[in-house]
Simulated scan of single mutants.
Amino acid sequence: MSMLTPQGLKGKQMRITGTSYPRLGPPPRRGRRVFAVIGSVLALALIALGGVQLVNIFTGKAKHGSAQACASAHPAAGTSGKPLAAPAPGASGSPSAGASASAGASSSAGSAAASPSALGSPLPAVTAVPSPQAVTVNVLNSTDKSGLAARTADELKQRGFTVGKVGNAPSALQKKVPGSAEVVGGQSGAAAAALLGAQVAGSATMDDGRTDGSVDFVIGDGFNALLDTNAAAAALAQATKPAPSPSAAPGSC
Rank of each mutant, 00 (worst) to 15 (best):
P246K: 15
Q133R: 15
T211W: 02
Q158Y: 02
A105R: 06
G39L: 12
N138H: 10
S66N: 12
P132N: 03
Q7S: 13
A237E: 15
S2Q: 15
G98A: 11
L195K: 04
I57S: 13
V218H: 01
A134K: 11
L4W: 08
P122I: 06
L54R: 05
G213R: 11
S40V: 13
L46E: 11
S245Q: 10
G186N: 00
L236D: 06
D212R: 06
G186Q: 04
V184R: 00
Q53H: 09
D208L: 01
K61A: 15
P83C: 06
A169M: 07
K157Y: 10
S94A: 14
G213Q: 15
A149Y: 01
M14V: 10
L140A: 09
L123E: 01
A235T: 08
G60N: 07
S142T: 06
Q53A: 12
Q13M: 14
V37H: 07
C70W: 10
S131P: 04
G25M: 07
K12Y: 10
S100V: 14
L227Y: 02
R30C: 08
M14Y: 12
A43H: 02
K176E: 08
P246D: 08
R32H: 10
P130W: 00
G202C: 05
Q158D: 15
P132S: 01
P178K: 02
L195V: 05
V215M: 05
V177F: 05
S117A: 14
G160S: 03
D212K: 06
S203C: 05
A191F: 03
M14G: 14
T162Q: 12
G202H: 05
A97W: 06
G120L: 08
A198N: 03
L42I: 15
D221Y: 04
N141Y: 02
S66G: 13
A232K: 02
V52G: 11
A101Y: 05
T229D: 15
H64E: 15
A125Y: 01
A99S: 10
G11H: 10
V129K: 04
R32W: 07
A118N: 11
G179S: 07
V163I: 15
S121I: 10
G186D: 03
G197I: 03
S66V: 13
A192V: 05
I57N: 14
R23A: 09
S107P: 12
G189L: 03
P28N: 05
G65V: 09
A43L: 12
R29G: 08
G189N: 00
L196W: 00
A109K: 09
P244A: 14
P116C: 07
L42Q: 13
K63H: 09
A62R: 09
P250I: 09
G90M: 06
G197R: 00
K63C: 04
Y21G: 08
L44Q: 13
A69C: 07
A248C: 10
H74Q: 12
L173A: 13
H74A: 12
L148K: 07
S100R: 13
A77K: 10
L196S: 00
A77I: 10
P244G: 11
A239C: 09
T205P: 03
G179H: 04
N141E: 07
P124R: 07
A45T: 15
G50P: 04
G167Y: 03
V137A: 11
P178C: 03
G11L: 12
S111R: 11
G185T: 07
A194M: 08
S245I: 12
F223R: 01
A86N: 04
Q7W: 05
Q7V: 13
P89Q: 10
A103Y: 08
A243M: 11
A201S: 10
